[in-house]
């Protein structure tokens, strides 16, 4: 019977370890607390080109994360990408003339949206659109332009 009890204790410890690991994966590795940001407010922004921006990419301001990309849609009439952002409710005074850029972390890293605050006293509220946007830098285009300018410079 003592043996049976030891087995039960070990199994209990194993299950506890397993659940702690799952909890760790959910909270620390994938940050469940930010994922459930349904209470935040929505902004949209239109870009001529978003590169490889994906839903769930971070939205940062001054390098600090303040929200996530909720959706990336295509507007078939304007031929533009419409990006929906979900912003942390605590960040509730983003100026109207804020600039949205699609940046890349590192040279080949994931793409994210960086907000560059303007100086307007009016603030963006739920459902507003960010009017000033800067498209993603496309590596191939940049290289192409570089080579082209190099070539024309030489010539």
């Amino acid at each position: 019977m003592a043996k049976q009890r030891n087995i039960e204790i070990l199994v209990g410890a194993f299950m506890a370890a397993g659940f702690v690991a799952l909890f760790f994966l959910a909270m620390q590795v994938s940050n469940l607390s930010l994922a459930g940001m349904d209470e935040g407010y929505r902004l949209t922004a239109r870009f001529a080109n978003v590169g490889s921006l994906k839903a769930r990419a971070p939205v940062t301001m001054a390098g600090v994360r303040i929200g996530r990309v909720e959706a990336v849609d295509f507007d078939p009439r304007a031929f533009e990408a419409v990006v929906t952002l979900r912003i942390d409710p605590a960040v509730d005074s983003i100026p109207m003339d804020t600039f949205a850029n699609v940046f890349t972390s590192g040279l080949l890293g994931e793409q994210y949206i960086a907000l560059d605050p303007g100086g307007s006293p009016d603030v963006l509220v739920d459902g507003d659109e960010i009017m000033h946007t800067q498209s993603a830098m496309i590596l191939e285009q940049m290289i192409g332009q570089f080579l082209f300018s190099k070539a024309s410079g030489d010539g």
Partner: peptide, 19 residues
């Protein structure tokens, strides 16, 4: 290390799918 991880990993897409 942690923030990049947390930014891109999703509970439903990654953890739940792994389970």
């Amino acid at each position: 290390f942690w923030s990049q991880m947390q930014a891109a990993m999703d509970v439903r897409e990654d953890v739940v799918n792994g389970v």
